[in-house]
Amino acid sequence: MGIKIKGGSGPDSDINVTPLIDIVLVMLIIFMVMTPMKIDEMAVNLPEKTEVVEQDEQKPDQLVVAIYDDGSMALNKRILSMEELARQLRIRLRTAKRRVVFVDAHPDLPYGSVVAVMDMVRNAGADKVGLATLKDEGPLRPGPVDPAAGAGSEQQGGAGS
């Protein structure tokens, strides 16, 4: 290493590699420290399979977000857009005692879009996200797919069955 410009007895003109070594060593140490990889994780709860909740027993303050196979969503059987759903959840969760939201998704949906909804629910202030399956074939639609028709049925229980 180093380029001799002049003859043997001239001034020493080796490239100074000390800063290079300093930087490379620091980078090496950084990579060694970072090696235990970071992971991003999201906690979800699963109700026990044996826990069967009749529709009549569902508490009115229970929040169930349903995602249908076409990607449309509903909060407690009311079909809402993603933004409206987030807004509604934020309002409801501000006053709720148990900040638990159940997410019930159609089995044909890609996992990524289900996680996107769970993410939205958590961002809206839910402490716990539960995965609910009320029907094997996915959440039941609240009658005809008409947002205006579902608007008045706020007191209805959870989504599905």
Partner: peptide, 29 residues
């Protein structure tokens, strides 16, 4: 689980784990 896995397959796994008695799990994102 991969992003484009059908939710059905993820549910099959989580349901089994819930049946085994683990009610809380973490999803890697």
């Amino acid at each position: 689980a991969a992003e484009n896995t059908p939710y059905r397959d993820v549910r099959a796994v989580t349901d089994l784990i819930a049946d085994g008695g683990m009610n809380t799990m973490l999803l890697a994102t």
